[in-house]
Simulated assay, not measured.
Amino acid sequence: MPSLFGDVISTFMGVPKATEPKATDAEVVVSGVPFDLACSGRSGARMGPNAIRQSTANLIWEGKRWPWDFALQDRLKVCDAGNVDYAYGEPESLVDNLETHANRWLKAGKKMLTLGGDHYISLPLLRAHAREHGPLALIHFDAHTDTYEQGTRFDHGTIFYHALKEGLVVPEHSLQIGIRTSYDRHNHPYEVLDANWVNDHGSAAVLERIRARVGHHPAYISLDIDGLDPAYAPGTGTPVCGGMSTDLMLKVIRGMVGMALVGMDVVEVNPAYDHGDITSLAAATLGLEFLYTLAASKNT
């Protein structure tokens, strides 16, 4: 087991570092994207990737993570490619570099867990994943739909509008979960399970809708940490009360074993607004749960 004060501080769960896809036998690569130039609320999400990695010091000691009956490293090989470089102040360079980075790892047959950064990073990631797997089912956790047509070229609130226009996602196989801000309910392209419905019906009902909607289609999970209620994730740029609990979201991700999951991002962690590291710990735990879900799916 890696030292709590050694590699775990610089990589997710202390997994080995790797920069060349063909030089590692890892099945999943963790990457960080320290970018927040597309946010409309409080900036600071560029600090999210490293804060999430550091929070895994609270998780690594478990060995076998509850309630799983195996240790992750016994079933899944994971590496950490560090943070994606770009020219600060130039969003175009982020888009180009992130797509290139994702293309390299996906073409090598790897799956990706990507740590944000603001939610705009999902658009380049979806482009790369759709290039490799075809149009995707989107499983999107958020307080906001991020389907707004207005906005600038680089805007974390328009990503799933552009993803649809670019043919990256298949709306009839996609869901948005935990939504609790306004949207056009009569002309909305995605199925929405709003926060009231989710909190009233629970994880089993949410999973039933996810499986019915997604089926066997290749699926990408995009998890905005503000899908959680601010009580569970105060450190985010656009907090909205009335969201999901960490327990509920973990149960939903855990319940996706056996689905055709191709990648996940966890975004909008803004550690400056959370003095107790609650948000980065939640993000780290949710990302780790995704890895366990992939590992468990190998035996289904």
Results as ranks from 00 to 15, higher is better:
145 T>D: 09
108 A>P: 04
195 A>Y: 03
152 T>D: 15
109 G>Q: 10
112 M>F: 05
177 I>K: 01
136 L>R: 00
141 F>H: 09
38 A>Q: 08
296 A>D: 01
108 A>Y: 06
88 Y>K: 12
142 D>E: 06
59 L>I: 03
43 S>V: 11
166 E>Q: 14
65 R>H: 11
90 E>C: 09
200 D>R: 13
240 V>L: 07
223 L>P: 04
215 G>F: 08
134 G>V: 04
84 V>N: 11
190 Y>V: 09
16 P>G: 10
90 E>Q: 13
251 K>H: 14
298 K>I: 00
101 H>S: 08
142 D>C: 10
273 Y>L: 14
7 D>W: 08
208 E>A: 15
246 T>Y: 12
23 A>L: 14
252 V>F: 01
107 K>C: 07
279 T>A: 12
273 Y>E: 14
203 S>G: 09
11 T>R: 03
93 S>L: 04
26 A>G: 11
146 D>R: 03
219 A>Q: 12
231 A>R: 08
234 P>T: 05
107 K>T: 05
279 T>N: 06
275 H>F: 14
27 E>F: 01
294 L>S: 00
289 E>Q: 02
207 L>M: 10
177 I>F: 11
225 I>W: 02
12 F>W: 03
159 I>W: 03
167 G>F: 02
200 D>M: 10
265 D>I: 00
294 L>N: 00
33 V>F: 10
103 N>V: 05
1 M>G: 11
48 G>A: 08
108 A>L: 05
115 L>V: 04
117 G>C: 07
143 A>P: 05
36 D>L: 05
230 P>N: 06
248 L>N: 09
38 A>N: 09
156 H>V: 03
116 G>T: 04
47 M>K: 14
135 P>V: 02
30 V>L: 02
194 D>L: 05
104 R>P: 12
70 F>Y: 03
111 K>R: 13
142 D>Q: 08
181 T>F: 07
185 R>A: 15
280 S>C: 14
59 L>D: 11
55 S>L: 00
159 I>P: 04
272 A>N: 11
228 L>P: 10
83 N>Y: 04
224 D>V: 08
158 T>V: 10
45 A>E: 06
107 K>P: 01
163 A>R: 06
181 T>C: 14
254 R>F: 01
36 D>K: 02
207 L>C: 08
105 W>Q: 08
200 D>C: 10
45 A>G: 09
133 H>Q: 05
92 E>V: 03
2 P>I: 05
16 P>L: 01
